[in-house]
């Protein structure tokens, strides 16, 4: 009986701690898992639709590359006509991205990272600036617009993406770009610190 009186509270304490730890962990990584899940859903859709357009060989003609890209883009757009900003970058995950970007662009090395992101950024690029480039979900990324460089130091911190998607910057927006369909899938507005 005495043994029970000693061990029961201890067990309760351990169980309580475990539940608490688990709850706090889900608070921390929950939104990220949610983001990963949304990305996965999108890529599944991409792959499903990809199988409906003629297969692109590894060594092919420019006309076929363009036709494939446009056909895939049309199918994806048609499959998510109501897609809007925040579908993948849900509000819950936004503070995480903001925190990572802030840490990259401020402090030691921040100035250089900001310069890197401006390099090739279609809003600022000196050679072929597209100041009016509209950032919108389901918008086609213009072929004539350059692509911003994304510092590897930042890419190593952000959630990993499947090969169909890339993070890019347009102005101060972080864009999720489908590279095969050349479509903006989602974006986080004005997240690069001024």
């Amino acid at each position: 009986m005495r043994k029970f009186l000693i061990t029961a509270p201890a067990l309760l304490l351990v169980a309580g701690c475990a539940i608490n730890r688990q709850a706090s962990r889900s608070r921390t990584i929950g939104p990220l898992e949610q983001f990963d899940g949304r990305v996965k859903e999108y890529v599944e859709l991409h792959r499903r639709l990809q199988s409906k357009v003629p297969e692109l060989k590894e060594k092919t003609e420019p006309a076929k590359i363009l036709a494939h890209e446009q056909a895939l883009g049309r199918l994806i757009k048609a499959s998510r006509p109501d897609a809007r900003q925040g579908d993948l970058f849900k509000p819950a995950v936004q503070p995480y991205f903001e925190r990572v970007l802030k840490s990259e662009f401020t402090g030691a090395g921040g100035k250089s990272a900001k310069a890197t992101v401006k390099d090739g950024n279609p809003r600022y690029d000196e050679q072929s600036a597209h100041p009016g480039l509209k950032v919108a979900v389901n918008a086609t990324y213009p072929k004539s617009a350059p692509l911003s460089t994304v510092p590897p130091t930042l890419l190593f911190k952000l959630p990993k993406l499947p090969q169909e998607l890339e993070y890019r910057f347009v102005g101060r927006n972080l864009v999720l770009l489908d590279t095969e369909a050349n479509l903006i899938v989602d974006y986080l507005p004005e997240v690069v610190p001024q």
Partner: peptide, 15 residues
């Protein structure tokens, strides 16, 4: 480069 679409990787003459 930063002016190149990633799909250039499929272009046969770029190997």
């Amino acid at each position: 480069g930063n002016h190149d679409d990633a799909e250039q990787r499929m272009y046969k003459l770029f190997n």
